[in-house]
Design a protein around this nucleic acid. Structure first.
Lengths: 140, 140
DNA sequence: TACAATTAGATTGTATACAACCTAAACTTT
DNA sequence: AAAGTTTAGGTTGTATACAATCTAATTGTA
């Protein structure tokens, strides 16, 4: 059997499995805030940018409108953001953070340090993997 | 703003983004074979094990029955595998590869080397990330 | 040996993901 | 300015993922 078609020799598979598992571990921490993981990273964009087009958010998160549009509608309904078509360019929809959305930031403060405890890597290794993944991500 | 809640300071995010992007790049290579990425890794298990329980496949792939059951039914319909409840332990369902499933192996042979060209890492870096991700995966 | 606890899959419900396609708006080019 | 092209979002359809729950089979135990 072709060794290259063995699961243990894949580079993509551990990437896929680790990503899923870590997202899964975020879930109980995000659940009290009412956020899913994807909504959480969308809120990170909002906390930092306050107002941004769907297009630019998609570029930051590597997500397209097929994923973002329904999710942003849910987040609008939850009261964390508002959506409004831009007046300068009517093709664009601007997403803006609300006061409720800002409040979530305080409640999310404890999450990063809690998650750090879930990752079984020494500090040095975490930095290595961070560096390598960023290099890979920038090549996309 | 809390620096720890910035997207660029997350470890999980590049993991999530890289995994999605690499799976996305597999898609056109797998499409002629009629496989999705998840079906492809399931076939890897089948090519190696020939016959395995749903439970054990789930442990190898980090997937549960909620994902596997519907997918394996599709793969059975496609003719690559067969599903049969075990006679020794009627709780278990054994999945076995068919002749059609074995044929797919030949057609998949070219995929790993094609994918290698999609990853913008030097040989050394690919090994590093492989090692770190496996360490992380084993801690689950 | 009854009976409680565990286990394996299946099912249901919710939430992504993304390709493919559609519409409207903005931009290019002639 | 009219026609063709590109762009931004929205919609549809398909395929995961996974929590929660259910059923049937098996195992552990008093």
């Amino acid at each position: 059997m072709n060794e290259k078609l063995k699961l243990e020799n894949q580079l993509c598979f551990p990437l896929y499995a680790c990503a899923k598992e870590i997202v899964r571990r975020y879930t109980p921490l995000l659940e009290p805030l009412g956020l899913t993981y994807t909504q959480y990273i969308a809120m990170m964009v909002m906390w930092e940018h306050k107002s941004i087009s769907v297009r630019d958010m998609g570029k930051l998160l590597f997500l397209d409108s097929g994923t973002l549009t329904p999710m942003l509608k849910k987040m609008e309904k939850a009261g964390w953001i508002s959506r409004k078509r831009s007046e300068e360019d009517e093709r664009m929809v601007m997403v803006s953070i609300t006061a409720e959305g800002e409040k979530l930031h305080d409640r999310a403060e404890a999450i990063p340090s809690k998650m750090a405890g879930c990752v079984a890597l020494e500090g040095d290794e975490a930095l290595q993997i961070y560096t390598l993944l960023h290099k890979l991500m920038k090549s996309f």
